[in-house]
Amino acid sequence: MRVFVTGATGALGRHLVPMLVDAGHEVTATTRSSGKTGGLRAAGAEPVILDGLDREAVIEAVVAAQPDVIVHQMTALADMKSLRNMDKTFAATNELRTRGTDNLLAAAKRAGTRRVVAQGHIGATARTGGPVKTEDDALAPDAPSRTSARSMAAIKYMDEAVTAGAPEGIVLSYGNFYGPGASEMLLEAVRKRQVPVVGGGTGIWSFIETTDAAAATFAAIERGAPGVYNVVDSDPAPVSEWLPYLADILGAKPPLRVPTWLGKLLAGGFIVAQMTEWRGSSNEKARKELGWEPRYASWRDGFPVWADR
């Protein structure tokens, strides 16, 4: 097939492009940086320098490629430093999840591309009820903080726009990335004992290793009915379990423990919600309908490999 991959040099795209080329697909891969075209060409893809917010340029590039599938992996997270003000940190990514998504959907329609596979996130999952959510569960009606409202709205917007705007629209709601090319900031912060357990650490997190996420994306290119799929490992776990474990394998001191009120004062409402209220996600639908199995079924197996890199 002809596959058009946007954000091809990101944490996930860098693994996905070689998978597609090795499988015999013809890949057009976009980047915003001219300095990254050589790597894409070496991987076997046809590179295109593209700003996802330039509507006419997006349409022109897609129409020229005439893809069977478009893969939307556009984000702007390389310089992410803090989550205290989510909307400020994610401002460019939110634009790509909204305007950028609209541009790709318009391009798909113009080119006659039926299947669009987009990068979503489990961050908008409801924070009440049972500990593990499926794709059928309602999303949170509100953001966990005033400074994360636009970011949560952008995640929801992508879910709705892609599944309604493409004949075969698929949104992959990824868990928290770790592994090659992802979350180095978290490792450094845990080593420095800068990530405390807030409250009781009762927030449930679902993780996904980056090459496993790429494998699920590859699967969604070739199969799966339209809709939303949670792409997470099989071991949702509270912060009180995974954070001390990560500190231990990094050879760091155990994380500090702070009360909820102090966590909110120091880090803001979004971080406190992550630490105390988040719910995990089930991967049953993705495993069943995409025929995908994560290589690292648990972060307990994947974290040591990540930490050793």
Rank of each mutant, 00 (worst) to 15 (best):
F303Y: 05
P167Q: 09
P236I: 00
K253A: 15
V239E: 14
G130E: 15
A237T: 10
V162R: 03
G269Y: 07
S82H: 05
P131L: 02
R150D: 04
G100V: 05
L20A: 13
P259F: 02
P144R: 13
A124C: 10
Y229T: 06
A161M: 02
P141S: 07
W299L: 11
T217D: 04
G165N: 08
H15I: 07
E293N: 11
L290E: 05
R97M: 13
K288T: 14
R110V: 06
Y174D: 06
M19T: 11
L256K: 12
S145V: 09
A92E: 14
G203V: 09
Y245C: 09
L16E: 02
A138Y: 07
K36G: 08
T113W: 08
P180C: 07
L12R: 01
K156A: 11
G201L: 09
R193Q: 15
I49C: 15
S183T: 13
A166W: 04
E188N: 13
E284V: 14
L77Q: 03
G129R: 04
V171H: 00
N230T: 00
L53Y: 05
D142R: 15
A11V: 02
R97P: 01
P294Q: 07
V258E: 05
W278P: 00
L246Q: 02
N94D: 15
T89W: 05
T147S: 14
A108F: 08
T276S: 12
T101P: 12
D235R: 03
E284D: 15
V239I: 12
Q119W: 12
P67R: 03
G227R: 06
A216F: 12
G201T: 06
V231D: 05
M86I: 13
V63T: 09
Y178T: 00
L290P: 15
G165H: 02
Q66E: 15
S281A: 15
E135A: 08
I271T: 13
M74G: 13
V228P: 12
V48M: 01
S34G: 10
L290H: 09
V5C: 06
K192T: 00
S206G: 01
L53G: 08
N176L: 02
L104A: 03
P167A: 14
